[in-house]
Write a protein that binds this DNA or RNA. Structure first.
Lengths: 222, 222
DNA sequence: GGTGCCGTAGTACCCCGGTACTACCCACCC
DNA sequence: GGGTGGGTAGTACCGGGGTACTACGGCACC
């Protein structure tokens, strides 16, 4: 029997979880909490096997609550649930010590399987998130050869256009690029237009993202 | 209908997979291979949606075969299977470009769910492995965010504003943010204005750069 | 009950950015 | 010579973005 603490600010959502979890013999909802602080308190009091934790809540959010529950060391595993698959949430939750991360659009059996896995010490990640997580993971651990094949969109740029793209990636306005490169703003506009067209970006913002994704722009300190 | 290429050096194992996959309407085994070289050849020839790949095989192993199939760019996704959950295998397979990694002791429905997820571009990791992977991941990604020192400009943002910033970092226009968050464009503009002011950005482009520099935005595939 | 903060929403205004053109110069190559 | 590609420059136009306001309901804190 796996004991579960359900944490969500919406009563209807908690009700749904309770109905689902109490409908199968292997899990039992032993408590509910409507916000982070209550979750931390009830986790310490009830010592559930698994805490089903919503991210967005008024007051203390699910991430901070997760951090505290895990830090308390009561052996409760935290399974984080969210509606939005925002990367920031995922990484924050995992850093906070969550044992799993599922989306609320998961099917009931997926949720039950997740709880089962978390209860025995395994971990689960929603498939839709796993892909990005793996992408990030392999990006962080690239001890192999970087692909020799450069993006064709990048190699279609002339030297000048590449310079312009780098400048866009620094966040410079057309006017700033013009003065730094000693050009007229018209010329800069012409270049920018061609860059956008070649890399398939609809505006300079997408170009900035493209530049970061392809290593033309690098994170700065501070 | 998802087409599958089964790769395993043991005929009995292949038989079992074929029986399972052909027993459900959504998957169909279109080919088999007994070792890596044959797998690469048949993948190029049959162009299956998913390659079910064993790791340990005589001759070219599953990792190298995975690398070549992924490099071929035929859009076949590789789901790696193994009996032994050796970390080395997992990391090597993921670096090789595998979309998933499951253990052979998985239940049939888990395997089918995994194939389903991989076929639509998601990724799957066996729960038993996910735990160690996450541990490794959080060890690799400690960008200051673990509690102590966060950029004061970031922590001055409300939850909502942080979501807005993430959306800006994805390159979404105000209108797109409005529709995805179900808000009026006016409200989005108000939020964006506050975000820009708080993080000291003069326009959303600088906000995108800020988001990347502070890990709120991450490179996307493609 | 008052005071802020937050999230929502609106109006009005201006400017930058992006597009669609055209145009000229230069280097290089048939 | 003529053609091509790259870099430079201009005009004209329009829409989205950003700013400066105001406003209101909900909620927490005192």
């Amino acid at each position: 029997m796996t004991t579960v603490l359900v944490v969500d600010d919406q009563p209807l959502q908690r009700y749904g979880f309770r109905m689902l979890l109490d409908s199968v013999p292997e899990t039992e909802v032993v408590g509910e909490a409507a916000h982070g602080a209550e979750a931390v308190r009830k986790a310490a009091e009830l010592r559930p096997d698994v805490v089903l934790m919503d991210v967005r809540m008024p007051g203390m959010d699910g991430i901070e609550a997760t951090r505290r529950i895990v830090a308390a060391g009561d052996r409760s595993r935290v399974l984080v649930l969210t509606t939005f698959d925002i990367d920031e949430y995922v990484y924050a939750a995992l850093r906070a010590g969550a044992s799993g991360f599922l989306l609320k659009d998961a099917r009931p059996e997926e949720l039950l399987a997740g709880i089962r896995a978390v209860a025995v010490g395994d971990a689960v990640i929603a498939p839709a998130l796993t892909r990005r997580l793996l992408h990030e993971f392999t990006r962080l651990v690239p001890p192999g050869g970087d692909g020799s094949t450069e993006d064709p969109r990048l190699s279609s740029l002339t030297d000048r256009e590449r310079e312009i793209l780098v400048a866009i990636g620094k966040g410079w306005s057309n006017g700033e690029i013009a003065s730094r490169f000693v050009l007229s703003e018209s010329t800069v506009k012409t270049h920018v237009g061609r860059v956008l067209s070649k890399i398939g970006a609809r505006d300079r913002i997408q170009a900035v993202i493209f530049a970061y994704d392809h290593g033309l722009a690098r994170p700065q300190a501070g």
